[in-house]
């Protein structure tokens, strides 16, 4: 009875607008809380940062519209150029080893391994630790004179670099920390993906005489491509945001060897108060990330991830 009444109301009442909006117009209400949050705290700031980047705004004093001046001066700012280089190197060299090693380790773990959960846990653990906490430990490990690492290297008779104090080793040291943190995450997600591959495919390949390594190249890698694609994008976005590590471990030095895009944004915005200029740097960061993400879509597994059922 009630149902009938409701349907009748639905059938009779809807005006043109209601029909135009579709059968579940209340969907708008349901997405509203999340969408409003998104628009106010993400989208609006994206536009605002674009507008700010065209000004000479500082926290104090007067400001004016200066067009693209901020962007042109970015290219003459050698701090920024260093940051750009360092960030790209960091993102790439954190991503590649943690992806490939993650996949290999995950593949190994899908064999009948005893203590699977122990390995999974120990690989994943670093990802749970905050960057600040990890940085504090690693600072001590990398200490040139008395750190853990150099004590070991010294005992074995290997050369002992100055790590964070040497421009040639500072960024690699940070990359080690980055890989240490990311490896487990990539591995766990790969593991989940691999467990979704039916064993029969491998069985069939074995019957056809394929070796394990061949199976890895020709079955595993292609089948986990969507996962790789996902991890690639996420890892890249992450890598381009690196800041905490830098702030605690090197503050960008020595001689700008480890300054990054976000570190420059931080310095210029919240230390020197060149908010307009820092906004231009932010805009550029967004463009780079968007560009790489979209390029991935274009040339990676197109649309696999985003497919609408």
């Amino acid at each position: 009875m009630a149902i009938a009444a409701k349907r009748a109301r639905r059938g009779a009442e809807p005006g043109r607008l209601r029909r135009w909006l579709g059968p579940d117009a209340s969907g708008y209400l349901l997405i509203a809380p999340a969408y409003v949050t998104y628009v106010i705290f993400i989208l609006a700031p994206v536009f605002a940062v674009g507008v700010l980047s065209l000004t000479s705004y500082r926290l104090v004093g007067t400001w004016e519209w200066i067009g693209l001046d901020n962007f042109t001066s970015m290219w003459n700012d050698h701090n920024y150029i260093s940051a750009l280089k360092n960030t790209a190197v960091y993102a790439f060299f954190t991503l590649m080893p943690s992806l490939s090693l993650g996949l290999v380790l995950a593949a190994v773990l899908t064999r009948q391994i005893r203590g699977l959960s122990f390995f999974r846990q120990s690989y994943y653990l670093p990802n749970v630790v905050s960057t600040v906490a990890a940085a504090v430990t690693w600072l001590w490990i990398f200490d040139p004179g008395n750190g853990f690492l150099n004590r070991i290297l010294g005992a074995v008779g290997l050369p002992r670099p100055d790590w964070l104090y040497d421009p040639n080793t500072a960024l690699p040291a940070l990359i080690v920390v980055g890989v240490w943190k990311m490896l487990g995450y990539n591995m766990v997600i790969y593991l989940a993906a691999l467990q979704g591959i039916p064993r029969e495919i491998y069985e069939a390949a074995r019957v056809d005489g394929a070796k394990e390594r061949e199976a890895f190249w020709h079955i595993t890698i292609p089948l986990v491509q969507p996962t790789t694609f996902f991890l690639l994008i996420m890892g890249f976005i992450n890598g381009f945001q690196v800041f905490d590590q830098i702030y605690v471990m090197t503050s960008g030095g020595p001689a700008n060897a480890t300054t990054t895009l976000v570190h420059q944004i931080y310095l210029n915005a919240f230390f020197f108060h060149h908010l307009g200029y820092a906004s231009a740097e932010s805009v550029f960061l967004m463009i780079v990330v968007a560009f790489v993400t979209l390029a991935n879509f274009r040339y990676g597994q197109q649309g696999k991830l985003m497919e609408v059922s």
Binding site: V46, V49, F240, Q241, F243, I265, S279, M286, V289
Partner: peptide
Amino acid sequence: MIPPQAIIIP
């Protein structure tokens, strides 16, 4: 795609 740090100023 938006890095949170990029919009922290606004």
